[in-house]
Each structure stands twice: as structure tokens, then as C-alpha cells.
Amino acid sequence: CELAKEKGAKRAIPLEVSGPFHSSLMEPAAAKLRAVLDQIEINDANVPVIANVNAAEMTSAQQIKENLVKQLYSPVLWENSVQYMLDQGVDTFIEIGPGKVLSGLIKKVNRRVATYAISDIETLEATIRAIKEGN
């Protein structure tokens, strides 16, 4: 952090992470993931998937597999991905899984969009109600 500040960074914060995700140190794991994905049938997507490796949409099964592998060792273009979706007219985001971290990050990109976080049956039902009611 000190070196980053010496080089002109306004702020540097050590991240508490369990691994060197999204860095070249993950390339051996990416090779293992590729081997697993090669054994799995993935179909072309009916709805475009936005890849965080390039903030672009894809529907090809081969592209999806390739970008899943690249995601392990590539920088995450989160803000670019969210902005791309906003530019395409997306106005509602649903986060599925524990916590609300991604919903909070989306709100930092655009506070006006609707975000929902689903972590259990209760939050699923609440999200369905809110969307049906237009909230």
C-alpha cells in the first residue's frame, strides 16, 4: 500500500481475500477449470450473458466456457458490465445468494435502478411481490 501511495495512488487498502483471484496466479486453476468445463455440456444461451472479463454480451456456449475460464485470472470489469446493461435498458437487478454486496455495488453505479437480493424463500417471495406490484 505504501508503494502504491508513493507512486501516486490516492488510496490503497489491503483486501481480505482467501486467494489471488482475478490475477495471473490463478492460471493453473483456470487450466483445471477448463478441463472440467470441457466435460460439461453447456448450451447456447437464450438470454445474453454479460461477461465481467470484457463487459460484453454473449450467447455462444463456447464463449461462455471461455469467459468462465478467463474470469479466474482476468480483472473484473464490474462497473463496465453494469453500465453496459444499463445502456441496454436494464432497470432491475436481482442478486441471488447470501448477502447484498452486489446490490450495493450496482447502486453505486446507478442509484435509480431497482435491486433485489434473494437469499432464502422469504426474500424470494418478497421480491416476487415487489416486482408484481411494480416496486
Rank of each mutant, 00 (worst) to 15 (best):
G97D: 04
L33V: 13
K5A: 14
V36L: 14
K5Q: 14
S60T: 11
W78N: 01
P48R: 09
I94A: 07
V53T: 15
P48S: 11
A29W: 01
L37T: 07
C1F: 13
I131K: 14
S81P: 02
S60H: 06
H22C: 09
T92Y: 10
A45T: 06
E122L: 04
A31C: 01
E122I: 00
K65A: 10
Q62D: 13
A56N: 14
E66S: 15
A30H: 06
N135W: 04
P20C: 11
A114Y: 03
Q39I: 00
A12T: 13
S119F: 14
D38Y: 04
A130K: 13
E122Y: 02
Q71S: 15
F21L: 13
A117E: 03
L105I: 06
K107Q: 13
Y116C: 04
I40N: 02
R111S: 13
L68C: 14
R129N: 13
Q83I: 00
S23R: 11
V82W: 01
Q39Y: 00
P48C: 07
V49M: 10
S74V: 00
A4H: 10
M26P: 07
P28Q: 05
S119H: 12
L68N: 09
V76L: 01
E27M: 15
A35F: 05
T127N: 10
A45K: 04
T123W: 02
D120H: 03
I118T: 04
L105N: 08
A31V: 13
N54R: 05
M26E: 12
K7D: 09
N67H: 15
K65S: 11
L68F: 14
A4S: 12
N43G: 09
A126F: 01
Y116S: 09
N67A: 10
G19A: 15
V109T: 06
I50W: 03
L105V: 05
A12R: 11
T115F: 05
T92C: 15
C1Y: 06
P75N: 03
G104R: 08
I106K: 02
G134W: 07
K65N: 12
L86C: 02
K100C: 01
N46M: 08
Q71K: 03
N54G: 05
L124V: 01
V36K: 11
K7T: 05
S24H: 08
K70C: 03
E122W: 00
I96C: 09
A35L: 10
K7E: 13
A130R: 13
S24F: 04
T127Q: 06
L86T: 02
E95N: 04
N110P: 01
A29I: 07
D91H: 11
A30V: 10
G134H: 11
E57I: 06
A51D: 00
I50P: 00
D38M: 10
I128T: 11
M58D: 01
V109I: 13
A130L: 02
I94C: 07
K108H: 06
P20W: 12
A61R: 03
E133Y: 09
V101N: 03
G104Y: 04
T127F: 08
E66L: 08
E133D: 15
R111Y: 05
L68T: 09
P98Y: 08
E95I: 00
G134E: 12
G99V: 06
I96K: 04
D120L: 05
A31R: 14
M58Y: 05
P20V: 09
Y84R: 15
Y84A: 06
I118E: 03
Q71C: 10
N67Y: 12
H22G: 08
Q83W: 01
I94H: 07
L124A: 10
L72Y: 01
